[in-house]
Design a protein around this nucleic acid. Structure first.
Lengths: 348, 348
DNA sequence: TTGAAAGCGCTAACAT
DNA sequence: ATGTTAGCGCTTTCAA
């Protein structure tokens, strides 16, 4: 890392026979500078291709920007969360910058370069993490700034977070399906590198077992990314099984929308032949045909409160670590049939 | 802005009876430090709540991070663009940080705080801008770093960009509808604070006029944000007009998906009663029922090439300003009827 | 393994 | 209107 030959403010000052202070004034448009000198300096700046470097950052040493790490922007779940963070941050005068972490992991690299290159007041971690990664991240963050986890969290560690009870949410949704008389449930999950996926799967299995059903492992798929195509193709697969599912429980509305399409493709009616439940209650879930039954997550609040927690930590590092759970709610729309009382039998 | 009492590396050094160099070593885990001193220092760091400030940024003065400004993360159009940028950036070792500009403008503020608080190697501007805003932004960016516009651009200014021919894209789509025998076209646009909206509307009007149709101004709506709900409600409005449109031309697939729902709500068949065309060819447009006819924009390439341009500028500021146009393509799916040869009459 | 001290490039207070 | 200069907080030689 040899010293590059990029011109500094001193070079500009020397070449235009003024002081660095004057150049600084011109760059920042602060005090008055005589038009003549200004032009002269501007010309030099232009000529040598001067670009301000990091020296100026030193004067105001407190960072007023918050970093939000998010796995995939593609997942519409994230957007309201980010809006929540941003609105909270705005109140306190913080800027919000986003880092999409997907690519980074792809390359087996990590957050280090970003964290070292910029100075953040704090970070909201909206990406999903394994315990090992979390360990690494908190290490990298050490002596840097506070962190708050949003939506993803790891129980064993004493770290502030705002999240939902993933297991419980799916437990309830599964029970709902069972009470509709649907017990051949295909479960479209994310893979277990996501903590939420493990918890949701646990909720599914527990609900099934609590009602006396055995788990049919091959009715469970675990996908590496959240997108429509994957939901579609895997729903297609499940619907093609010898014992066709009569319900598809999806851990994302995105998967559920793919599943909807798969049913159409197969000529199956929703909800008559196949019930579908999504997760997240994204805006789109009201736009589908039929509209989606889904588990509402308070995404905006998830983000908003995470940032509130973070700002609290920033202002008072001694604040004790809070862990907040927000409520989910099953929103019943048209992709699931009506609940039945006791009748679990088939009807022709 | 009074000097805050936050501890610096010097405080830590003094309190642990070592030099700042040693503390620095420990923080960065570089050279070897005796375990004993390390623990001693670590304890002090913990006790005083030390957090590294911006001083360290000075040593490596070249920024290796690129800023991407995007209006609304909500619009799925942006995601592949960002992926394109990120993949290009990755090749050259740049990190990519995102700034959602929506809130900022809402508050009548601007980019200044972010631009001043961090140092970027360059910025890709994916947000839409008015000429006035652009002027302000380029001023703010002055002496800071190069900028490349992506997708949005302003003809009058000599600034590098990668974009599509908005006018032409809609011109072709309009002609397609006309050739399908649909001339009562409702046009669902963004409002004119977006440059692309002006251009697309011009394309629509020109096509209509070139075919001898008069423009029906109240069949045009101009929306302030790109989301499903707005598309839905405005399509509902258009479909409720006395002279009901037989086609809805939308400048975003998002609007088109809302329009699809509106047709369903009204009991109108797509494409038999109403043809629908979207814009962007987002992944979701294949998942709808019926699948969407849409104008494909090479979003990934838009992003990728923008970043290539930017890196070129970063490495060689004297590069001449390039302006690149990428091709769009009308993708015909099931939301539009078959083209007819000459028959413009109704059939009962 | 550790310390002393010279920068890094800029801003801002103060002086002229 | 402009110049002088003392920092800003850290990293990094170079010496010990």
């Amino acid at each position: 890392m040899q010293k590059k030959n990029k011109p500094t403010i001193e070079d500009v000052a020397r070449l235009s026979n003024v002081s660095t202070a004057t150049v600084s004034r011109i760059i920042n448009g602060k005090d008055k500078v005589k038009e003549g000198t200004k032009q002269k300096v501007l010309k030099v700046i232009e000529d040598v291709g001067f670009e301000i470097r990091k020296g100026n950052l030193l004067s105001d040493n407190d960072s007023k920007t918050i970093l939000v790490c998010v796995t995939e922007l593609k997942n519409p779940f994230n957007v309201p969360v980010i809006d929540g963070i941003q609105n909270s941050a705005l109140k306190y005068g913080y800027d919000v910058l986003l880092l999409q972490t997907k690519q980074i992991y792809t390359e087996f690299s990590d957050y280090e370069s970003v964290l070292k290159a910029q100075r953040f007041a704090g970070v909201v971690f909206l990406s999903s993490v394994t315990s090992a990664q979390l360990k690494k991240i908190t290490d990298q963050l050490n002596y840097r700034c506070p962190i708050v986890f949003c939506s993803e969290y790891i129980e064993e560690m004493n770290i502030p977070y705002v999240a939902i009870d993933d297991k419980d949410a799916i437990y309830k949704a599964t029970n709902y399906l069972l009470s509709c008389g649907r017990s051949k449930i295909g479960f479209i999950n994310s893979n277990h590198s996501h903590n939420y996926a493990k918890k949701r799967e646990a909720g599914f299995k527990e609900a099934m077992q609590d009602s006396g059903y055995t788990i049919n492992e091959h009715m469970i798929v675990r996908l590496s990314s959240v997108n429509y195509g994957l939901g579609y193709s895997n729903a297609l697969y499940l619907l093609g099984l010898e014992e066709r599912p009569d319900a598809l429980l999806c851990i994302s509305d995105v998967f559920a929308i793919g599943a909807l399409k798969a049913c159409k493709k197969k000529g199956l009616r929703v909800p008559e032949d196949v019930a579908i439940i999504g997760f997240d209650n994204i805006e789109l879930s009201t736009m589908t045909d039929p509209s989606l039954t889904t588990i509402d997550q308070p995404n905006y609040q998830l983000g908003y409160q995470s940032c509130e927690l973070l700002v609290e930590k920033i202002n008072n590092p001694d604040t004790l670590t809070k862990q907040i759970f927000l409520e989910t709610e099953l929103i019943v729309r048209d992709s699931t049939p009506l609940m039945i009382s006791k009748n679990k039998g088939e009807q022709s």
